[in-house]
């Protein structure tokens, strides 16, 4: 009994020690990683923000969205301001909401306007998981071209604007789906593909 307890105590000490190390690493990451990101965001936000100097407003971040044009088959970049922070995942969610909302310059969103972003999760392995409402599959009848455009507008928007994002998985209503509309395989993560983007 005593022996067992002693074993328990030393295991506890080990766990506590481990936790301390993890905490230390997290603290270091928080400061070193955090500062770099803050500086970058500040620089990003400073340029286009100059005009709209509403005092005491939350920081903004400029993101690049990918839309279709009526005149060609490419994705076209359009910048947009979103509220900054606190996490990449929250910013990513706002960027996707803007992508769905559509263009301010006459481009077209490849996603149905009713689509809701249920959640964005960014893992530390660089895998971003985006969960859309079922509108993304039900409010449009995809052909191969429109389905590829929808998938890569999302993937490119996330990978282009958020450094930690290396690849993207799309879910619908919290579950894996075979495809959005019968064409593009959703079972594997997508890497960004900028070959679809106009120069």
């Amino acid at each position: 009994m005593t022996e067992k307890k002693q074993g328990g105590v030393s295991r506890q000490a080990l766990i506590l020690g481990g936790l301390a190390v993890v905490l230390l690493v997290l603290v270091i990451l928080f400061f070193t990683g955090g500062i770099g990101e803050k500086v970058k965001r500040f620089v990003d936000a400073a340029v286009p923000k100059a005009s709209d100097a509403a005092g005491g407003q939350a920081a903004a971040k400029t993101v690049t969205l990918f839309f279709l044009s009526d005149d060609d088959d490419f994705l076209h970049k359009e910048t947009r301001e979103i509220a900054a922070g606190p996490t990449d995942a929250e910013e990513a969610e706002r960027a996707l909401v803007e992508l769905i909302k559509g263009s301010e310059k006459g481009f077209v969103s490849p996603l149905p306007p009713q689509t809701k972003v249920r959640q964005v999760f960014i893992g530390k392995d660089g895998l971003a998981t985006v969960d859309f409402s079922r509108d993304i599959t039900e409010k449009i009848s995809y052909g191969s071209s429109s389905e590829l455009a929808a998938v890569y507008a999302v993937v490119d928007t996330l990978a282009f604007n958020f450094k930690p994002v290396k690849k993207v998985v799309l879910l619908v209503e919290g579950a894996e789906k075979e495809t959005l509309g019968g064409h593009v395989d959703l079972s594997r993560p997508f890497l960004p593909d900028y070959s679809l983007v106009a120069r």
Partner: peptide
């Protein structure tokens, strides 16, 4: 066998 569909009417 498929027939294509795009958002752009001109495609």
């Amino acid at each position: 066998i498929h027939a294509n569909g795009a958002v752009q009417k001109k495609a």
